[in-house]
Amino acid sequence: MNRLNKLFASKNNNLLSIYFTAGYPALNTTVDIAEALEKAGADFLEIGFPYSDPVADGPTIQHSSEVALENGMSLKVLFEELAELRSRVSIPILLMGYFNPIAQYGIERFCKKAAEVGVDGIIVPDLPIYEYENMYSSYFIDNGLSNIFLVTPQTSEERIRKIDDLSSSFIYLLSSSTITGYNLKLSDSVEDYYKRITAMKLNNPTVIGFGITDSSSFAKACNYANGAIIGSRFVKLLGEDGYIDKIDGFVKGIRP
């Protein structure tokens, strides 16, 4: 049982997760930011590693990825920064990024290294179910890493069941079919979709992401899932001067 499973076993509502891009706004900030987020009360974190062609991301996270790459961020550099992660941060940590940098690093090597520095789970939006199941799942399982799958309002029930079977910590529900960084509009159809998921009584907990920007959208999302994830809005904060001191206020502003 990794830290993620323990977290969901002990707390099953209002979980707050924060995403940020490693290497943004500067190198050697990853663990500082993670530590500040833990102190402010975040329940778990997603650390993004940058890619040149982030198809699922909107302008904010695209920009943070570009800056991070210019700063020299890479998986090699990230794992060096994360070497001191577990001496300073104890909440669950996920790495999130696109498949090609992982493929170049070596998938088996990536999983081993992630486990070694104390990472608990991986989110790779463009790694499909078929390839995960048939080619790579053993590397994740052998290293005690949870692979997190995304579900959208268009995902069929049959496919959600399959994802539930393959998941071992939580399922990432997208608020709508969109790239990152857009505001959540809680229309009737979105509500129907959340209700449909709830009615399926899945084995895994669910967390809602994409379009969560403030305390009100966070609270709404938590009506239908075990927690919610904030990404672009936090990445914007990291672009401001003195961001490290603003982290506490930001987190408390989301979940008073």
């Binding site: 198809v55 699922a56 498949f99 939006p125 463009d126 790694l127 499909p128 078929y130 390839e131 799958f149 995304l150 579900v151 959208t152 268009q154 995902t155 496919r159 997208l174 079919s177 969109t178 790239i179």
Partner: peptide, 19 residues
């Protein structure tokens, strides 16, 4: 049937594009 030519091909797409 899986969309591969030898080692190449497939559909490495985020879930949002799957449908």
């Amino acid at each position: 049937e899986q969309g591969y030519y030898g080692d190449f091909g497939g559909a490495y797409i985020p879930e949002m594009l799957y449908p």
